[in-house]
């Protein structure tokens, strides 16, 4: 551990590094969920998508390590993870738009189905080690201690996610398609009057959102923690749903919220490494408690939350 040698100074450093590593999957899943919810449907099944993405990325990276080489194989894995996510997103998008079918229930079913798919096909890939995504070493040219070096290794996926957030903000605000999505999510009747197909817009939003969630899964298995196990996601896909509420359905806020959640996740291990072992598991629960507290503070029975898409949670 980096922080062992650095003592107390290592705690903020470990949290900063952990924020980046732990925040990346949150960033992708929450942006995917944000896109989905903007169109007026919830996708709780992103937990299953995350697991399937993590598994398929790892499997593809392992299987193509010889044919594509260890540099390209992980990127093929990332792409396949996104495509696998799209397949699950298609099932969700089609099913949750049938009459009298509840999107939350479909999401729970997709968690079971998606994790089933991931564990079924992922079993042979738990043992072997696949080539991981390369990282950008910002301080490689300096002669700073190893601990600093490892703390500032940046994954291309993190950079990509950080770039997508403002792009999505611009997309919602200034493009025709962004307007369609917002119209369908806020007022399906108005969208219908505009001649927009609600079904198609929601389907595309859910499929695209699941693509991002699949990439989030790839960042789990190919970046950090960089292994494929059945416990690799531990509910991060579900937390993304809470995170989007926390972020008020704004992509840039999703970015800050993801970093906050990633940092909160790194708090427990960082404190443990300097000898504070009491309450390790309670620190692990910090993001969940934080989300709940924020929801309790910001929700109110007398007014709807600002920023919530109008059709969200209704049958339309």
């Amino acid at each position: 551990m980096a922080s062992e040698a650095l003592g107390w100074l290592g705690v903020p450093l470990a949290i900063a590094a952990g924020t980046m590593r732990g925040g990346t999957p949150f960033l992708f899943v929450s942006l995917g969920e944000c896109l989905t919810e903007k169109s007026g449907k919830i996708n709780l099944g992103l937990e299953g998508t995350l697991l399937t993405g993590a598994m398929s990325a790892y499997a593809v990276s392992y299987l193509t390590r010889d044919s594509l080489g260890p540099m390209l194989a992980p990127f093929a894995g990332v792409l396949v993870a996104g495509l696998a996510g799209m397949v699950l997103g298609f099932i969700h998008g089609w099913l949750c738009q049938q009459p009298r079918v509840n999107d939350v229930a479909v999401g729970i079913a997709m968690i079971i189905f998606g994790s089933g798919v991931a564990f079924f096909f992922g079993k042979p890939f738990i043992q072997p080690s696949a080539p991981l995504l390369p990282t950008i070493d910002l301080l490689a040219w300096t002669d700073l201690p190893e601990q600093f070096q490892s703390a500032v290794k940046i994954s291309p996926l993190f950079v990509l996610g950080v770039a997508i957030a403002p792009l999505m903000t611009w997309f919602f605000r200034s493009t025709r398609w962004g307007l369609f999505i917002r119209a369908v999510g806020d007022s399906p009747d108005a969208a219908l009057a505009m001649g927009v197909s609600i079904f198609k817009v929601r389907m595309l939003s859910i499929v695209a959102g699941s693509f991002l969630a699949g990439i989030g899964g790839a960042s789990l298995s190919l970046y950090y923690p960089g292994v494929w196990t059945e416990l690799v996601s531990s509910g991060q896909g579900l937390m993304a749903v809470a995170l989007v509420i926390f972020a008020r359905w704004q992509p840039m806020q999703c970015l800050w919220a993801s970093l906050l959640f990633g940092g909160a996740q790194a708090l427990g291990p960082a404190l443990q490494s300097v000898g504070i072992t009491q309450g390790y598991y309670l620190f692990n629960a910090a993001p969940y408690v934080l989300t709940l507290v924020i929801m309790v503070i910001t929700c109110s029975p007398t007014r709807t939350m600002t920023g919530v898409p109008g059709a969200l949670g209704s049958d339309r």
Partner: peptide, 25 residues
């Protein structure tokens, strides 16, 4: 020699078809 996650897939498929069947009423 199917992985034990097979039951999870079965449960998932059953859940999804039951939900879809609601739209057939």
């Amino acid at each position: 020699s199917l992985p034990d996650a097979t039951v999870l897939i079965f449960q998932g498929i059953m859940f999804l078809t039951i939900l879809y069947s609601d739209s057939l009423y």
